[in-house]
Computed example of a mutant assay.
Amino acid sequence: MMSASFLAVLLSSVPADAIGHGGTYGNAKGTELSASAHHSRIEVTQVSGPTNGDRGTVSATDVNWKPPPCWYEPVFSPAQLKNFAENDGDGDVGLRDGWYGSKLWTDHFKDGKDATTIFTTPSTVKGYKNYNLGKDGYFWRGVAPDLSTLDDTSLCSRLMFWVDAGKVPDVPDAPTPKTLAEYAYNKIKVPSTAIQVKPDTKSTVNLPTWVWLDKGRFQAVKVRAELPDTGLWAETTAKPVALHLAPGTSDAETYPASGDCTINDDGSIGTPYEKGDADKTPSCGITYLHATNGAPYRLKASITWQISWKGSDGSGGDLPDGTFATTQDMTVQEIQSVNR
C-alpha cells in the first residue's frame, strides 16, 4: 500500500479532475461529487428576470478581473465521510492531494494517524478519531472549478479539516458572501441583443438607419448563490444600462456619436421608427457613408450590464460591468436620388 505522503508527491502536479477511475471521476453524481475538488456545492438559482428566449453569459469589461480561483467549503458530515472512506476511498482529500485506497482514509480519519502532505503548513496533519462521529459539523476542503488557473500552490491547499456546525473557518481562502457573488457572475443568463432596425432590408448611403429595442425586454436579472451548511448566500444582480453600436466599418456615423444608446425608464432603447421620420435624426442609430460591396457590414450591438451584489451578512457592492453582444448583417445601397 502506498503511503499518503508518497501518493501526494505522485499527484501533486496533476489537476484533480484529470485523475480518474473507470472514466467516471468527477461525475457530479453520488459520491463522485464528494470525491472531486473540481466540483463546488454552491447552488445558483435565478430569482428574477426573463427566463425564456435566447440568453447567454456576460463578459467582464475589466479584462483583468476574474472570479476567485478557489475557496474552502464543507464536503462531508462525519457519517458521510465514514461511508465514503469505507466503501469507496478514492478521491481528493485536499485541493492538490488525492488518496486512492480506503486505508489511507481510515488511517487518518478513523484511526487518528497523522498524515504527511506537501502543500499544507504544517506538513504533518494530526489525525481524527472515528470520523468525529457524534459531533455536529463538517469536514471542509479546498475547491477550485479550474485548477489549471491556480498557479499558487499555497492557496486553498489544506488537507480536509473539521469545522463545527454553524461556523465558517477563520482561515485564508474561507468563503464569504462576496466569494459567492463573484462565483455567480458567470452564471447570470441575460437575453440576447436582438435589435430592431429600419430600414429592415437595405440601408441607404447617407440616410439614417434607426435602431431600437422594445420596452420590457431588457429587465434586471438577479441570481442567488448559496453554499449549503454554511448560512452564506449572495444575490448578484445584472441591470441593463446602455446599448453600444459598432457599425462594422469606419465609414459610418452613429447616434449618439459615442455609439452608446441609453436605456429608457420603461426598459426600451432608442425610439421606434414611424412613417414620416425619414428626415429626422434617430436617438439611436447609424448612418452609413459608403455602400457595401459584396460582403455586408457586420453590425455589432452590445448591451452593457451593471452588476452589483448583496450578501447574507449585509455586505454588498459592485462588480465589473458585463457586456453581451450579437452581430447582424447590414447591406447598404447607394442610389442617385430618393423620393420621400
Rank of each mutant, 00 (worst) to 15 (best):
G56V: 12
K187N: 14
L133C: 10
A60G: 04
F76P: 05
V93A: 15
S3F: 00
E334V: 02
S40T: 15
P282E: 00
S34D: 13
G142N: 03
P177E: 02
E182K: 07
D265L: 14
V197R: 15
D277S: 15
G23Q: 01
L150W: 05
G267N: 07
D265H: 08
E274G: 13
I19M: 04
T230A: 08
W309N: 08
T121M: 04
I307Y: 03
R340A: 07
A257Q: 15
T304H: 02
S315T: 15
G231L: 08
P208L: 08
S258T: 15
K126G: 07
Y255S: 06
D200I: 00
T326G: 06
G112R: 00
V125Y: 01
Q333H: 03
C261F: 03
S123R: 14
G53I: 10
A174T: 06
K110H: 03
T201D: 13
T254N: 09
S154P: 08
I303Y: 01
G166H: 03
V190I: 14
A18C: 06
I303E: 02
R55D: 09
K178Q: 14
T120W: 00
N132A: 12
A4F: 01
T249A: 06
T176G: 00
A257L: 12
Y100D: 09
L95Y: 03
T204R: 11
A165Q: 13
Q196R: 12
G142A: 09
V75P: 04
G294V: 05
L33E: 10
G322M: 07
A225I: 10
K202Y: 12
N264I: 06
G248W: 10
T204D: 08
V75A: 13
A35T: 10
T230L: 03
K222R: 14
L245E: 06
I118R: 03
A144C: 13
G134K: 05
T117F: 00
Y255M: 10
K110V: 05
R158P: 00
R96I: 04
L133F: 09
S203I: 11
K129T: 14
W212G: 02
R141D: 04
N83Q: 13
L213V: 14
E32Q: 14
G98V: 03
T31R: 11
G314V: 12
D265F: 10
D151T: 14
D92R: 00
D277E: 09
S250I: 00
V75C: 07
P169E: 06
A234F: 05
G91D: 07
K280R: 07
L33H: 11
T57R: 14
I42P: 05
W71C: 03
A181P: 09
G137Q: 06
S59F: 04
K202F: 13
D318R: 05
T153L: 10
T292W: 01
T31P: 00
A301F: 03
I195F: 00
G134E: 08
A37L: 01
P240Y: 02
I269G: 01
D329A: 15
T124F: 09
Y128G: 01
K222Q: 13
A220Y: 00
K222L: 05
V47C: 10
P175K: 03
S250Q: 11
F161G: 05
L213A: 14
S3Y: 02
V221H: 14
L289S: 01
G127I: 04
F139H: 06
V211S: 03
